[in-house]
Design a protein around this nucleic acid. Structure first.
Lengths: 398, 398
DNA sequence: ACGATTGCAGCAAACGTTTGCAGTCGGGTG
DNA sequence: CACCCGACTGCAAACGTTTGCTGCAATCGT
């Protein structure tokens, strides 16, 4: 009779439920936790559940966190949310984590090491249970240290050189292969590459992919047709494309490391009175929102960013649930989206002579694509990446 | 001598610092908190600070939160992070909150009431100290209830009809005035409006602004030239623009409630073989990233979204610091960005016959239009909006 | 010189959970 | 019957802070 009270004095606590159910708070705790429910009599458990629902009990995650050193929170480190690419990744992460009852704690680092460390430590202090990072450079001390200290880390979109950290990224190697194949299919022979920063895995692997794809197409990846940019921005794209043009090496197409870099190409070409795709074809990477609206609509490689985030979340959940499998590196299959920025090679057709793409090349391409569609750890592929007779990437050290 | 220990056994706690400084943990707590530092001897305080820094002490926000019922965390409710508009707002919020030592906890609601409530309650359970919401509809029960229950709430980008909730938004009224003025300056007289959802403040106020601006330009806002969309998407924009065109009312320009709607206009116009801006000018709203890249580059009204978020954060911090001023509604100044989607009016000069439209016809049509368009009660336009013009620029400087 | 005031620091009780340990009770086994 | 075992559930100690209260000097007022 005395248990009937108006819910006024603050939120309902475990003790309130205990009182209502006529049991000890500890029992309530056990009854409410699915893990430990087996320890309490089925009948009383039910009574407790009822009382809890009746009172509208909501557990206090803070108190729980203090006791358990777990917050059900995952720190998400991202370079810049304003970049739609990362926004999509973050949404994927959020939705993926929700299924496991976890919440993301998001911080932008602006690619600044100091900001990242600050964010990282703030998150650590807040007792996050793990980190999902989209900020990795190929050699990332911070994350490596963190994992050495026992932190759970999953990389997304970008990974590190080492296989020590679990990661889910797009299959860049395959992606630029698709791009190059598309261009060669249009008759392009002299294809340039505007590579992204080689300190970032995305920039590096796309460059590797480009070289391999060119070799596979029996084309010589001409060093004078490759330029390395520092950052993934339009300005930088324009600068580098200008540099490319100033070299006066003939080329009819550009594979850009990024949609932003591709956009920069638009600018540089226009500035010099060249037309895309009439004079030179451009293909980007990522398929950001609205690139289909550009002038011309951009041919690009779509990366499933949302899925990247969602599966990264899955990987994290697995790790949190104590699965102690070795870190996996997942590759998600990209997809070529052909739009208006690529056209048949006109300028150099005369120069390169006639001839469709060889059937052999198409055949092997198909097999690789099928394999990649599986999207599971293609560890062998990774080795292929590293074995590539890499064309002088050292010049691009920042 | 005994105080010298390797930092191994877990993180440093208040007690560790106390031991090192030779004082009681309570004293350490007081010394470390600027608020209460006055209670402890200056000399000992210094000793404590030194010890804390020496040991690399990091306070445990969880424990603190348990004791104080404060988490130094702000719940941020946003419709969709993938919309670059909101991404910018969120970045502004994050940066603004950081100055005050607060961290945002972000959730996407997808404009879904249920998801919003779930997110809201999850955040409440996590003891957030307040909410910044970009999800408001003009009548928002959830947020109103929350504030009635003592929650601190600040609205951003969208506000509610009532003046009860503090909010910082763009000055939509002024924004579309700029747009209309720009168009009339180019000789447009028959100007259509593709309004956004009237359930959202942005949609509603821009509509109001349109009507007022037309009246101010001595043009009659023709009811047949106004169409209301349901949601801010390209598809919807195309649909509504098509509807507008099907009415066969002459017009030479469209003011869209949104860049996305404007994009939809592009589609609808193209579908009907009309050209922008040659046949009809289009102006958007928001100046999303990359709209300068569209075909044609979109003339639009820039809203300082980042600053919106940053000042919303400021408002929240004020509220948290116990300032008990009545809720303020801040307006940030918009800016017209003229690009390629607007041009001099050409078409209707011939269609409407000689010279300007007849005053008489315009007059009667105008009255009807005013009455009809006034269905949205334009007469009682928010006076508050214009009572606070002085605040907006001063507050927008961060 | 004596009581009152002040400045400072220690004490301990919270905050709401979780969880090892111990106790209780009933029933089965030797 | 003594014993033990299993199934429960109560007890209480944590987790790391904050904060009202108390205690104790030293200082002040007269």
């Amino acid at each position: 009779m005395a248990t009937n009270k108006v819910s006024l004095a603050g939120p309902i606590t475990l003790r309130d439920v205990a009182r209502a159910a006529g049991v000890h708070p500890g029992t309530v705790s056990r009854a409410l936790n699915p893990e430990t429910r087996g320890l309490v009599n089925e009948h009383t458990a039910e009574r407790v559940l009822d009382a809890a629902k009746e009172l509208g009990y909501r557990p206090n995650p803070i108190a729980r966190g203090l006791r358990t050193n777990r917050s059900h929170t995952i720190g998400v480190l991202v370079p810049d949310l304003m970049n739609p690419l990362f926004a999509a990744v973050v949404r994927g992460i959020e939705d993926g984590l929700r299924d496991g009852g976890y919440t993301p704690l998001i911080a932008n680092t602006d690619n600044d090491t100091d900001r990242e460390r600050v964010a990282f430590e703030a998150m650590s202090a807040r007792q996050v249970d793990g980190f999902i990072a989209a900020t990795a450079t190929r050699d990332h001390w911070l994350l490596a240290d963190a994992v050495a200290l026992g932190a759970k880390v999953v990389l997304v979109n970008r990974r590190v050189d080492s296989d020590a950290l679990p990661a889910v990224t797009g299959d860049d190697h395959e992606g630029v292969r698709l791009a190059v194949e598309h261009l060669t299919g249009l008759g392009h022979r002299r294809i340039a590459h505007l590579a992204g920063s080689q300190a970032l895995y995305t920039g590096w692997s796309r460059h590797q992919g480009f070289v391999d794809a060119m070799l596979a197409a029996r084309l010589e990846p001409d060093r004078s047709l490759i330029v390395f940019s520092e950052v993934f921005t339009e300005r930088e794209g324009a600068r580098c494309c200008g540099e490319l043009l100033d070299r006066h090496s003939e080329f009819t197409a550009i594979v850009a490391g990024n949609d932003l870099l591709a956009l920069g190409c638009y600018d540089a070409l226009e500035e010099r009175g060249l037309r895309c795709p009439a004079d030179v074809s451009v293909v980007g990477y990522n398929d950001m929102p609205f690139v289909d609206r550009f002038r011309p609509p951009l041919t690009t490689v779509r990366v499933p960013h949302y899925e990247l985030g969602a599966t990264a979340a899955q990987l994290m959940l697995e790790q949190l649930h104590g699965v102690d499998a070795p870190p996996r590196q997942l590759l998600l299959a990209p997809e070529l989206v052909v739009r208006g920025s690529t056209a048949e090679a006109a300028g150099t057709v005369s120069a390169a002579g006639a001839g469709p793409v060889s059937a052999a090349a198409a055949g092997t391409a198909g097999e690789q694509a099928a394999g990649a569609a599986g999207a599971e750890a293609l560890s062998n592929r990774r080795k292929a990446d590293h074995n590539t007779p890499s064309l002088d990437t050292s010049q691009s050290r920042r």
